[in-house]
Write a protein that binds this DNA or RNA. Structure first.
Lengths: 150, 150
DNA sequence: TATTGTTATACTCTATAACTATA
DNA sequence: TATAGTTATAGAGTATAACAATA
């Protein structure tokens, strides 16, 4: 007899939430140590290269109007600068300052160290877990939210 | 040659975040359809039986002072009632109304339907993923946040 | 003294809508 | 007309500190 799929899925969703919660809690704690609110930290972590503000809104999956405030905070802290695009004068590119680069590196270092400790599995299991979870994550982008239909 | 563990872990953390993000986005959307803000929905989902407000604060991992506002919202919507504990008159138990039970069921039904669609894997993989993720989640509770040390 | 729940306060996050300046 | 970014506004989530009632 096979296990009840509903139960397995419920278990799975619970574990996924818990694991992500642990990752997020650590990210927030690391951010707090660096004096950064969560959203600003998330923005900073995503700024691998100069990018228009619009792009940041897409990354953070939030309305463009929020980005203004988040970037205001990062600019107030001296971590990014707004640089107007000479080609299209509506666009402003976000450029990290030296201090911004430094904090970004610390932020990523902290997250990664925690992840390594968290995903403490034998290599075979680690690879298996990565493959399975990636399949779910990749397939999931095509699923309509709150409808359950593809 | 084995793959670089750092890369695998980074990939894994990314997938875990994405999967949890999908689950959460769906939960919020389902909550919104029921006219519930996220925190109130989360509280409602956790109220399987009458519980003291303090317990809810632990579940939600937030300060007790927040719970007052969240429960105010649920009470305003007629979904829960505060019932004083006769044994310890400091304590108030949260009891779902009939409408509260109804919305709670709908909320859980929506989440679960989405999870079933999301975790659309052959049974063998499904069980494997559940086991691996559960191991990580269970082990993770013992890890200090933002320090990476056990 | 310690704990439960409340209030007051402040900061942050988020979406909507109306606006500007460009394209 | 459409797009990038801003402003104003309002609702929501969160933590801190001080407090009342009770244990």
């Amino acid at each position: 007899m096979s296990e009840d799929v509903d139960l397995v899925v419920a278990d799975l969703a619970d574990s996924a939430f818990r694991v992500a919660g642990l990752l997020r809690a650590n990210f927030h704690a690391t951010a707090a140590e660096l004096g950064l609110p969560p959203a600003q930290a998330m923005a900073l972590a995503n700024l691998s290269a100069p990018a228009p503000m619009r792009e940041l809104a897409d990354w953070l999956k939030c309305d463009a109007s929020n980005v203004t405030g988040i970037v205001d905070g990062l600019e107030r802290r001296g971590l990014v600068k707004r640089r107007p695009d000479p080609e299209d004068r509506r666009v402003k590119h976000l450029v990290l300052t030296e201090e911004g680069e430094r904090k970004r590196a610390l932020l990523r270092k902290g997250s990664h160290a925690h992840a390594v400790t968290l995903f403490d599995l034998p290599e075979k299991d680690l690879l298996r877990l990565r493959d399975l979870l990636k399949r779910v994550a990749d397939a999931g982008v095509g699923i309509d939210v709150a409808s359950g239909c593809k």
